[in-house]
Design a protein around this nucleic acid. Sequence first.
DNA 1: ACAATTATTAGATAATTAGCTAAATATAGA
DNA 2: TCTATATTTAGCTAATTATCTAATAATTGT
Lengths: 113, 113
Amino acid sequence: MNLVFKALSDPTRRRVLQLLRQRPMSAGELSAHFAVSKPTMSAHFSVLQTAGLIEAEKNGRTILYRLKMSVLEDALLAFTHTLGWNLEPKSRDNVTRMAANSRHKLHPAKEEV
Amino acid sequence: MNLVFKALSDPTRRRVLQLLRQRPMSAGELSAHFAVSKPTMSAHFSVLQTAGLIEAEKNGRTILYRLKMSVLEDALLAFTHTLGWNLEPKSRDNVTRMAANSRHKLHPAKEEV
DNA sequence: ACAATTATTAGATAATTAGCTAAATATAGA
DNA sequence: TCTATATTTAGCTAATTATCTAATAATTGT
């Protein structure tokens, strides 16, 4: 859980997760959304991956990153639970909505969400 | 929101929040739960306070810290919302406990995003 | 006024972090 | 094979962080 919270402490990384919510994206595509260098982004991906929040799938010369929502979910629920704050996912149709969302938007370029 | 996530990135500070969930406690009482020096704890309290997660009330020579649950709630819900993950409070007794805990300002200090 | 108590501020340090450029690796296509 | 593309690794720096001890401030009780 500590790794997850450490990963979430950086705004760039939180935004990466938000972008990946829509659909899996390559390192390059993700990087295009930010004003920092690719090596810096690569380091962010590494932090997210070590925390278990994203996973990588190599395809040819690109690497596709995808969000592992369940890990985020587990960490946040565990934490809020220790605060006696019992949250629960509203419903399973998050998943459906997420899938439905994952079309459009080839280049949001700036602020997302 | 960034200050909140930064504050949550340290396990000592998360634990402080958990302790304060039960009841407000003085700096000394909180510090007694940890293996670090009091000045170090004082710095942690400062980070939490700057993030708006706790508030201080000076009483004689002690300082009573209390959790501001609503600020934590706002930040976490805002974040999960950007992930399309709609959480909602489930149990009623948070509310009761929070009410019991304090006069809990309806309008917490604003914080940058 | 003095001593004890509670907590902070000051000042230092070691470790971590986010950022950069340049170089290396791996793959795809001509 | 050569070149372009996609991404990471290496190596560096500046800023931030968590920690410590010592000193200071504020308050209480004798």
